Simulated scan of single mutants.
Amino acid sequence: MNQERLSQLALNFIPGLGSYSIKQLVSYAGSAHQVFKLPKAKLLKIPGIGKVIADSILNNQPFSRAEEELKRSEAAGVQILLHTDQEYPKRLRQINDAPSLLYYKGKANLNTSKVVSIVGTRNATSYGKEVTDDLVKELAKHQVLVVSGLAYGIDIQAHKSSLKYKVPTIGVMASGINIIYPAIHKETAFKMQDEGGLLTEHALDTKPDPHKFPARNRIIAGMSDATIIIEAAKKGGALITADIANSYNKDVFAIPGKVTDPFSEGCNNLIKQNKAHLLTNLADLEYIMNWEEKDALTEESHITLEDFTQEEQIIISELNKESNAILIDNLSWRTNISINRLSSLLLNLEFQGIIKSLPGKRYQVTKSVY
């Protein structure tokens, strides 16, 4: 790993620094490597950086931990995906609170043309398991990637059915990638790595503490085109995932159930409140996602403006008009976007590798987007 990548990894071992703060630091300094070269006085001027974090940046401990983590990851066959890497899930990269790095062990393409997450109650009924199995069987013809959380109930059924029908499947974990939770799912998790994989934002040996599960759900929702809820009680993790997916403007689907069934109450409420599309068969999903008009074998080969938000499209279109870099002040005037908001959007596009920042707060497109 080169110095820049090692520096990016080291930033993740500084207590108190979250993914968003890390991206802001890198943008301010120009690179992760430069962050560690900033004097303390300059670090303290950066919003959100206090004395404790500044001191942590300036000692060697983050690098020592990063080097050790790298060695252990390589020995375990674990790939570290930085936010700027091409292999990093591109759908997730567009989310503001996307992890700055991911640990991945598997063989599936995280950027395949169709990605669907399937989640639900941990207390799955025979009906829920049967519906999950039938849905995955039908999804196989679209060569989808199925994402779930490796939990009891609907999640593990989605993984097992994917293995059964040879559909690549990813288990997103709330722990270090070397700690399978629940342990009873170890055998399934190992099998998944042959065609699918395991994914987490947490360092090796991280325990699956309760507060990590809701955060895990944002990855499940963020890296998928659509989230399908199959059985959910009135409250629970599946509904959190649905809410997150809706906040990301992702399509959410729910399987209806009996009005007297407590494990269908969550799904029925999502449909009733217009927070999810009614899903009774694969045709419903194909229609909403416009899959019936697309070749199920075709992979995305290029980046289009449709892959970005409306504001990002405006920025990219303006930058595309010029062969030279544009000053942020001029770009703000031309796009009618405030400097503060524009800075945040430019940072996100920079981390996606779409644009690059130049001295003097100038920006230029680096990838063709049409």
Rank of each mutant, 00 (worst) to 15 (best):
H142W: 14
I180N: 13
V144Q: 00
I184G: 00
A75K: 12
K105G: 07
V146Y: 10
A75E: 14
G120M: 10
D133A: 12
D97W: 02
Y152L: 09
L110M: 11
T125A: 14
T84G: 11
S113I: 02
D85N: 03
Y88N: 04
K71H: 11
P62N: 03
V78E: 08
E87P: 05
V115P: 07
L82Q: 14
S148A: 13
P168Y: 01
K71Q: 05
K105A: 07
K114D: 06
Q157T: 10
Y165L: 09
Y181I: 01
Q61A: 08
K141T: 10
K129V: 03
A66W: 03
A98T: 15
V172F: 14
L92V: 10
G176A: 01
L145C: 05
L102K: 02
V167G: 06
A76E: 01
V119G: 02
Y127M: 13
L135Q: 09
H159E: 03
A75R: 13
I118E: 04
L102Y: 01
D97E: 13
I177M: 03
L139K: 09
H159F: 06
V172L: 13
L82M: 14
I177A: 07
E74F: 10
I95K: 01
E67F: 03
I177E: 03
A66C: 10
T169C: 09
H83S: 09
L82H: 15
L70I: 04
N96Y: 14
T132E: 12
K71W: 05
L163A: 05
E74D: 01
R93Q: 15
L70Q: 14
I53H: 04
I118G: 05
E74Q: 08
Y127K: 12
V167F: 04
K164V: 02
T169L: 04
V147P: 12
I170V: 12
K141N: 13
L139V: 12
S117I: 15
Q86R: 12
L150G: 07
V116D: 04
L145H: 01
D97P: 00
I180L: 05
L92I: 08
A158S: 08
E67L: 15
S161F: 08
D97R: 06
Q79I: 02
S117Y: 13
L92S: 06
P168C: 02
G149Q: 06
I118V: 15
P99N: 09
P89H: 01
I184Q: 13
D155Y: 08
K166G: 01
Q157W: 00
G171Y: 01
Q94P: 10
Y181V: 07
